[in-house]
Design a protein around this nucleic acid. Sequence first.
DNA 1: GTGAAAGCGCTAACAC
DNA 2: GTGTTAGCGCTTTCAC
Lengths: 333, 333
Amino acid sequence: MTSIKDIAKIAGVSPSTVSRVVNEKKYVKPEIRERIMALVEELGYVPNNAARSMVLKRTFTVGVVIPDTFNMFQRQLFSIIERCLESNGFRTMFFFVKWESESEMKCLRRLLAENLDGIIMIHEMARPDFYEELSQRSIPVVLCPFSHEGLSSRSVHIDEEAAARAATEHLITLGHREIGMVAGLHFSFAAQRTAGYRAALEGAGLSYDEGLVVPVGSYSAADGRLGMRALLSRPRRPTAVFAQTDELAIGAVRALYEAGLRVPQDMSVMGFDDIDISAHLSPSLTTIRQPIFEMGRETAAIMSRLIAEEDETEGAAIFGFELVVRESTQALG
Amino acid sequence: MTSIKDIAKIAGVSPSTVSRVVNEKKYVKPEIRERIMALVEELGYVPNNAARSMVLKRTFTVGVVIPDTFNMFQRQLFSIIERCLESNGFRTMFFFVKWESESEMKCLRRLLAENLDGIIMIHEMARPDFYEELSQRSIPVVLCPFSHEGLSSRSVHIDEEAAARAATEHLITLGHREIGMVAGLHFSFAAQRTAGYRAALEGAGLSYDEGLVVPVGSYSAADGRLGMRALLSRPRRPTAVFAQTDELAIGAVRALYEAGLRVPQDMSVMGFDDIDISAHLSPSLTTIRQPIFEMGRETAAIMSRLIAEEDETEGAAIFGFELVVRESTQALG
DNA sequence: GTGAAAGCGCTAACAC
DNA sequence: GTGTTAGCGCTTTCAC
């Protein structure tokens, strides 16, 4: 690999001069600059990031922690974040982590070894000490799309509970009284969405019944299918179902299809997240849209400001959500 | 950040000794080792990767180049590769690139700046000089799931043409004679799958008709929907359609649904890739399964061997595919 | 067994 | 304007 020294030797100048040219500093005679630039081009010189970040004590890299089983919503989110970060001059390094203590600790070590300028968490950690360890190192952290109790980190998300409430109220408005739910177990949004569902029910004078709520282990279509199947075997059969994510909803629709039930004629199905394909399914999914682009952009923006130490905002950035009514829900009748 | 020097000072030994302990080298008295290990634990010391890779002239990092619009198939693939690479002791760094010349060149610069130990391409580049530049630097490259004409790089993929031929023959076997195709424009697999479709048709004595082939700009569900809609407006209407990816198939099913046509009763739809959700759709998708796990594992394995300079194989690793018959296709009748 | 010293590629003070 | 020098954190000879 050509280094700054090689260029310097050939050009008959010192390494510092080459450095100045490469980093577009002033104080270099135009003709020398020209000569060096030509050499850089010719030899295909590219500065070594490791060496640079060592002396600068900055890596221009932000780490993004994400579940190894990331779903389509998270996938869209991190693409947006990556793009915004890049246009702010940062590199992005991904850290996939499993929902288990050991994997989280390994992730922490790797995070620390990289000397990151900042860390964005798209994955909620099971261990609370993860966040503590991080804050001790005084490295900027932004959480998206969730927050963490008692943590000073900035976060970006919607009001999950209100959104789940709106989703459930949509079903109630359509005349449904028996409303089931396919609910996740992990991550705080599961509890928040469950709370919203419950609040909507109770707000309408309906009682919350555990018999209509089926817990599933992951947010995959496969588990949505299993969950819906379980729900259908319960004594009390709902006329509408709220799935806590679109992928769960896709699986739920599948289970209904297998049972010979039509969506939405025989059962309304409501999703959450509005992932890309939801609009292209048959039937298309009624769901809650998170303003994912805006959220990703804001996450990247906060991180950039935090790194530049010019962030004047604080706390959580709460975004609005939107009820997107499509074909998978209809009035009871 | 605690460095090796800090530890050394406190422990009253030299930095070299600490290095030996951290890197599990021998020649350190057990008691000193103990003392240092305790300190490492206590101070939360984590070696600085940049400094390490600088002296070692190795980064233990492999770059994975992937389209910024990566689909679910690619998403599964890169997760597998990341996991396998990690268990081989390598870090993974992702490089998202757009299908445009400028983005590719920027990607190349970034790739070079990282001093990667190897590069895995999950994205076919438009510019041929991309590969040339790379091979000049003598850095190991593995292509998956495609190969590149006249390039010595190792590659891992299926026989795309044979697979597309099998897909089309499945439809022919079901009695279909009017078989449409929703075809992509980018990447070599598009041409290969088109060739397979054509070969199957001609092998059955059917003629290839451009009027039954609709080209689309991306492999998204949105474009599949558009493509199918276009196909339905053509004078010659097929009874079955081969979509070049599952996501295209999802969109195609949607367009049929909107047109009031049932799948598979009124039109059979065939996908390709067998992404996760294909089995959970309603109807579930008949498709071609690429042995994605095995392919990802092999890609990582080849890369590891290449880096260790102990690769004894060469050329392309061709994997078998599998026709997965589900609900979206049925006999013409 | 352990330490001293050199050096990886780069940047930033400081001289000149 | 440009060169010299020191040093970022680490590993690795080479002495001892």
